[in-house]
Design a protein around this nucleic acid. Structure first.
Lengths: 343, 343
DNA sequence: CTGAAAGCGCTAACAG
DNA sequence: CTGTTAGCGCTTTCAG
């Protein structure tokens, strides 16, 4: 059965070094009162014996785990991957470990992940693209500090300072707006939006698009299509709509979707951007490698992860959550929207 | 300073429920000796108070953490993302938490990650694409069980059962071979290989390619180019080599590289597959969405992660590491190699 | 400068 | 059926 992992303990080291456990502890933790020679000897014995401190015991007595929880919808998404990388990096720089859980856009799994963090006494938790309500999240991990990254629960839309949690969002609407302004400039007059999952950012991006259209006096030009997945049926439906309406430009919820749509359109003989312009959102690495290369809106994904850690640490140390922020985005024009002047 | 996370403890619950701590512990852990009504009351109080068991305390006394460590080169890579997803999923199914660390293909960080696992008393650890020697890894996390996934340290090349660690690899060579056989069939006669990082799989794939070429009596046809990155200089060099040699087919180390190369080639006016066939390796999601869609060799990435967990759990429970395995790969022919019969 | 003792939150004998 | 006791591995007063 379950082989117990008998490891070398502080006492083993103490015994071997002929000192008490306290001395070993102090020596290894750089207590100035321990003279250099004892410290060296203890250290020597410790490494010789292969001693590794037991984190569980440590956190228990220190009442601090130096652990952050990160809840992700799914690590397969390149966009999320970048956030995770930024988060993990920054955490490790500050000596924090991160424990991760995937929610797969499923409230149940989201709760389970938070539960996990609570059990592990995470001192702070970041929720990426979560759909649970803030109250629920807060309750689940109380009293950990929480920051919401790209929170998808509609209630997270407003900016919320003074709350026991922080929000990091991007200028989704501004991104949509920038996209439309660019497309107008290259001569597009009719637009369609391909929706993503029914979450906050889907709506915000669409609102930005609608706003820009309104400003240009093209308010009711915008068609909206349900987003497709890799499944052939949904793409076929989408393509048939495009073929029927023939908009000049197709604004997709995100890059992944845009690439799927572009592929489907090509299979049906539509040329991008000659017949139709396509844009994405996120600027995932592959957006720059598609053919045609994808015009998109870049999100500072890595920075978001980094910032999340910073906010959490600040909240942990100073006991005050920094104000929520909304990060700027950047329009990146590539081939998929380079139209010859359209009608 | 550091606000201590005062949480509700077992004793709080015990007090409030008017029983002893042991009773609460037993009730909450489903000990059959506790009668239904007490169990219910305890449970009620526990949830009302928002009690969450302290994992650190638990692991300490149980001498079992139910934690697995996963070391990844970098979560940004879609291929690795799938392995991670499979691993995490399977672990959570079996009630294990996973703690993850990124190595960024850097031995130092790899060691640090392993150290982290040791401190957290991970009961098993999986190393994905690691470059450290097995001995070092084993020493670093002893006595945890270890499995190497796609280990990139050359010494891992041979199949190794009866060892205190397991290896999960894929049929890299067979994949390379299949690719060549397919390319020969569509009329390619001259080949070039674009290398990845100098690790085991780069070599294995090339060996498979060379073997197939030898079998076809085309041994010395194979040119080898240094792999490019997104950086313009390296791609320019690569393109100039391709332009000079004009091979019929370009076999790239992996999909990511293939997409980069394809993009560079297109920028220089070369058409794929009309002028040159291109293939990748891995079958990342975007391989199916490129234009032209990429011919590649699919690896069972998710299964690898899942299998790693299974091997680890089996080693933990039965104290015997299952034999190493080498997973099959699958040739996926797409547009990038659909040549009209070449000369 | 160093050791002895107490205790972090929890579980597991061992009595009752 | 339930409470008391001891102790997981570590840090930290508090004495010496």
């Amino acid at each position: 059965m379950m082989a117990h992992l008998r490891r070398v303990t502080l006492h083993d080291v103490a015994q071997d070094a002929g000192v008490s456990a306290s001395t070993v502890s102090r020596a290894l933790n750089g207590d100035r009162r321990i003279p250099e020679n004892t410290r060296a000897r203890v250290e020597y014995v410790a490494t010789r014996l292969g001693y590794v401190p037991n984190q569980a015991a440590r956190s228990l007595v220190l009442r601090a785990t130096h652990t952050l929880g990160l809840l992700v919808p799914g690590i397969t998404d390149p966009m999320h991957g970048q956030v995770v990388a930024g988060f993990e990096n920054e955490a490790s720089v500050h000596g924090f470990s991160v424990i991760m859980a995937s929610s797969y856009d499923n409230p149940q799994r989201e709760s389970r992940g938070l539960q996990l963090f609570a059990r592990h006494q995470a001192e702070g938790v970041a929720v990426l693209g979560g759909i649970l309500e803030q109250r629920q999240v807060l309750a689940a991990v109380h009293p950990s500090r929480v920051v919401f990254l790209d929170g998808e629960n509609p209630a997270l839309a407003g900016d919320t300072s003074d709350l026991p949690f922080g929000c990091i969002r991007v200028e989704d609407a501004a991104g949509g707006q920038a996209l439309v302004e660019h497309l107008l400039q290259v001569g597009c007059r009719s637009f369609a939006y391909v929706e993503g999952p029914a979450v906050a950012s889907t709506i915000a991006r669409k609102q930005g698009i609608a706003r820009a259209l309104r400003a240009a006096g093209l308010d009711d030009t915008l068609k909206t299509y349900a987003g497709a997945s890799l499944d052939p049926v949904s793409t076929a439906t989408l393509v048939s709509h495009v073929l029927r309406d023939r908009p000049d430009a197709l604004l997709c919820y995100d890059d992944r979707l845009a690439l799927i749509v572009m592929d489907a359109l090509r299979a049906h003989g539509l040329r991008v951007p000659a017949d139709i312009a396509i844009t994405g959102f996120d600027d995932i690495p592959f957006a720059a490698l598609s053919n045609p290369r994808l015009t998109t809106v870049a999100q500072p994904a890595g920075d978001m992860g980094k910032l999340a850690v910073r906010m959490l640490l600040s909240a942990i140390q100073d006991d005050v959550m920094p104000p929520s922020v909304r990060l700027p985005v950047r329009l990146i024009v590539r081939e998929s929207s380079r139209r010859v002047q359209a009608a």
